[in-house]
Design a protein around this nucleic acid. Structure first.
Lengths: 200, 200
DNA sequence: CGTAAGTATGTAAGTGCTTACTTTCTTAAA
DNA sequence: TTTAAGAAAGTAAGCACTTACATACTTACG
């Protein structure tokens, strides 16, 4: 017989295994048996901890919806009115996190494509917050006369678009980065183009 | 008995029904029975025209891989060295096409996420061509001294990122456009920021 | 021209495997 | 002794794909 864990630890173990599989193969592409095998337990254990496969998926999406430290370093730069610092911090952190663990980006895309009911909540808590942070920063700097007058939200999404697209191309579609194009250099380029583009 | 069509027409009918379903629900999420029902025939007919479900999916991806007229208007502007015109044409056409028929974007994302073998070919023929067109235009304009010196491919992908991200946000995640933000205005904004950002 | 043979297009009803979820029983910790 | 964590072995439904057979269109031959 297998090691006996506390319910909480076992539950976490199931979630960890499921995150990996759902993010790689989607909800419909993942078998509950695979999850059980990956967690080293029997299928029945999954159903002791989660009512349905969909319930497990929802639990994951909700857990991944907590906002984390991504905004912290950007907020510091924002306080010091370091425009390039704000953008650099956001871009680099996003890329770094996604390269280290692409499961979040994949889960987000899968849940939207597959039309999961929590996809919207997922988007609101993970993406919208970032958009709002940057757009209100831009709005403030427009008021201060440092940036040109423009739709701050659309503009902010434009910047995130450059970063997200970079991740799509390299992490999802698997395009190889030529040696001259490190993430850091790409972010520098995006920041410089974007800043020069919006400054007065 | 149902109407008797020519093999070619029937095949096309199956493909049409399948495109709609695969783009909405993905490969794994689509049942062959659903495709048959949507096409108004029996499952066996699918298997008379395609060896396997996967074969049908591959046929669709290959068919969708043909490059179309997207580059035409941009090429005209490129010839006249109308920088804003090039970017505007690319951005507007991409948005217009995707809004009219989102199936292509969804198929592309699904095939990459689900790891379909033809996903790479799909990407190369649909996406890479655009990247190459714009990056070689940018490279030329750098040589002519109109744009700052920078990595043309990364820069070009930055512009497409703004457009693609706009489509992801509105077409995939279903964020409502506020009335002030029409696609046309958004493209104008992206073009203006991007151009000002890369010009000397 | 008329018609029977041959062929392509179609269907209804499977077949066997997979899958989400259940039931029943065992074992170890408190 | 009680209770919850665990395994083994189902079950019913769903799935890609097949089989056996019917019907319409085409064509060669009298």
């Amino acid at each position: 017989m297998k090691e006996r864990l506390s319910a909480e630890k076992r539950r976490q173990q199931i979630v960890d295994a499921a995150v990996e599989l759902f993010s790689r193969k989607g909800f419909r592409g993942t078998r509950t048996r695979e999850i059980a095998e990956a967690a080293g337990i029997s299928e029945a254990m999954i159903y002791r901890h989660f009512a349905t496969k969909r319930g497990l998926y929802s639990a994951i999406i909700e857990a991944k919806s907590v906002t984390e430290e991504l905004l912290a370093s950007a907020a510091t730069a924002a306080h010091g009115k370091d425009d390039a610092g704000v953008l650099r911090a956001l871009g680099l952190k996003m890329i770094e996190q996604t390269v280290r663990d692409p499961s979040l980006m994949r889960l987000l895309l899968f849940s939207a494509l597959e039309g999961h009911e929590l996809s919207e909540i997922f988007f609101e808590s993970r993406v919208k917050k970032l958009h709002q942070f940057l757009s209100s920063y831009i709005r403030k700097r427009i008021k201060e006369g440092r940036f040109r007058s423009m739709d701050a939200l659309v503009t902010a999404r434009g910047f995130f678009g450059m970063i997200v697209h970079y991740l799509l191309v390299h992490e999802l579609f698997g395009v190889k980065r030529p040696p001259r194009s490190s993430p850091k250099k790409a972010v520098e380029l995006f920041v410089s183009v974007f800043l020069k583009g919006i400054e007065r």
